[in-house]
């Protein structure tokens, strides 16, 4: 059966006031996980932001299939001070099903964000992205702030993924990328 292409990036150069990444080309089909690697400043996060429209495209293009639905977990999400929003309420923003998540997440569902640690908040956001209806999930350094157990649970969430959902994973941890990704695109 032919796999459905969700996203195609062609000769893309993207950035903000000037290009900081590219030219880069790749495509991702349904159900695949691809990794973006490269040194600091090589434009991995910028590439994700170009896909979501948050960074400027200087040349090349990005083609999305009409049914592509995207969620993007930003690098180092800022934990809001004194916000009573519960983990469960954060999940519902993305239409995510908490039952698709792990025990670690179940313990956080009725905890307000203001009483979570940075690592718990980061893990909750990543899990919400993976448990939602989006078929293309962009994860930017999802292992930051996580302890070893949490990284193992994140691995389980990535391995048990929906066959129609694709993931673009940015990480500076090469072993983590090699463990989960079918392909790794190195940005220089």
């Amino acid at each position: 059966m032919k796999s459905v292409e969700l996203l195609k990036v062609e000769n893309l150069r993207a950035g903000y006031t000037g290009p900081v990444t590219g030219p880069v080309s790749f495509a991702i089909e349904e159900g695949h996980i691809i990794g973006l690697g490269g040194p600091n400043g090589s434009g991995k996060s910028t590439l994700l932001r170009a896909i979501t429209g948050a960074a400027r495209i200087f040349s090349g293009r990005i083609k999305k299939a009409p049914h592509t639905q995207i969620t993007h977990h930003w690098q180092r999400p800022e934990l809001p001070p004194e916000l009573a929003l519960l983990g469960r309420e954060l999940f519902s923003l993305l239409g995510a099903d908490p039952d698709k998540s792990s025990d670690r997440i179940h313990c956080l569902l009725d905890v307000p964000l203001s009483r979570m640690s940075g690592g718990q908040f980061q893990f909750l956001q990543t899990a919400a992205c993976l448990a939602g209806p989006a078929n293309l999930v962009l994860l930017d350094e999802p292992t930051n702030n996580l302890d070893g157990d949490a990284i193992d649970e994140l691995s389980v969430l990535l391995e048990n993924h929906d066959p129609h959902r694709s993931v673009i994973l940015v990480s500076h941890e090469k072993p983590f990328l090699e463990k989960h990704c079918e392909r790794i695109i190195e940005l220089s």
Partner: peptide, 17 residues
């Protein structure tokens, strides 16, 4: 409420989709 909260936690959700 849903729109503003989504934008707060997933800033590029709307442009991405």
């Amino acid at each position: 409420s849903k729109r503003l909260l989504t934008e707060r936690f997933f800033p590029d959700y709307y442009s991405a989709n």
